[in-house]
Computed example of a mutant assay.
Amino acid sequence: MTVNIDVLCDIKNHLGEGPLWDVEQQRLYWIDSKVGNIYRATADGRELRAWDVPGQIGSMALRRDGEGAVVSLDSGFHFLDLATGDTEFIVDPEPDRPVNRLNDGKVDRAGRFIVGSMHGTEDEASGRLYRLDPDLSVHVLDENIIVSNGPCWSPGGETFYFADSWSGEIWAYDYDLATGSVSNRRTFARIDADTIAAADGATVDSEGYLWSAHVFVGKIVRYAPDGTVDRVIDMPVQKVTSVMFGGANLDTLYVTSMAKRYKTRYPADGIQRGSIFAVTGLGVTGVPESRFGA
């Protein structure tokens, strides 16, 4: 079996993040976090379209009803009308934490949007993990986080995975699908402390294995359900940021990356920096992403 890594779209995203494959539309969405852009393309990178949102964007999820999305911005949660580009404010969960912004998020199997916040300069553990319910109420699930990243669930939804990128760990929680509550946080995997790697975006495949983008070292790591490393994919850029399975058969792994120079002590990338990559030939399939229930 041969693994192929191709550039899907070379658009030099400042901070590409949040790939989201929609099985209904057969389209790939992703964001450029720092500049407030959302992109959409076909599985092979055609029919590229973009939307602007009013501020930095951490993540997005499609809604069950109509052509719309819910987005996490630096000013809080908003609805986005994809037909008009208009946004509608929902709630700011952190009005008392102006340095923070909402970051990575995904929807659980019951239609709740789980999103973590982060400290704006990544220096303090002021972030929290939130749950936005379909009735638009907000609930705190965890706290004392520097940079929230990589939320995803086991195929059955009973285990929730999440990372504070600067903790050096990926965590697992017991997840109650009936209530959306988390418990029993434990270390699922540790990142190699001898490298500059940090756990960024993640997804789970249909076999229950976790795929994690290790930013700054250009690696996608597949973890077995017991947390051991099963496979490592070396990418052509160092600053890979997130992953998502998509395509007609959910067997293409889409990978986002960043074009910006993060800090001088971290590596710069070549001409393919900021691209969206399509990885094929992996021999596994993903799990369809849920839509927000409002």
Rank of each mutant, 00 (worst) to 15 (best):
E124Y: 12
R27L: 15
M60C: 00
I90H: 01
G293Q: 06
K239N: 14
T256D: 09
T84L: 13
H119A: 07
Y130T: 04
T159A: 11
V284I: 09
F160R: 00
D10H: 15
L136Y: 15
L141P: 06
D74L: 11
G247E: 02
E88V: 10
D251Q: 05
D192H: 07
Y175G: 06
R97W: 06
D22Y: 00
I114T: 01
G116E: 04
G157M: 13
D142S: 02
N149D: 08
G76A: 11
P54D: 13
W51K: 11
K263Y: 05
S59H: 03
V99Q: 04
S290T: 09
A83D: 15
A213W: 00
Y266W: 03
V115S: 07
A224R: 13
S275P: 09
G157L: 10
R64N: 10
R185G: 07
K219T: 14
F216T: 14
T256W: 03
V279N: 09
I145C: 09
M60R: 13
V138G: 11
R101G: 03
A163D: 04
A163P: 01
T203L: 06
T195N: 02
R265C: 14
I196V: 14
V229I: 15
D32V: 08
Q56P: 00
L136I: 09
I114M: 05
T87M: 10
V182H: 00
P19H: 01
V204R: 03
A43C: 07
E88S: 08
A199L: 11
Y173E: 02
H139M: 05
K106P: 02
D234R: 03
L282D: 01
D251V: 11
T187S: 13
P267L: 03
G180D: 00
S75M: 06
T187G: 12
H14S: 06
I145S: 07
L15P: 03
V217H: 05
A189V: 04
D104P: 02
S242T: 01
V7P: 03
D96V: 05
S212E: 14
R46N: 15
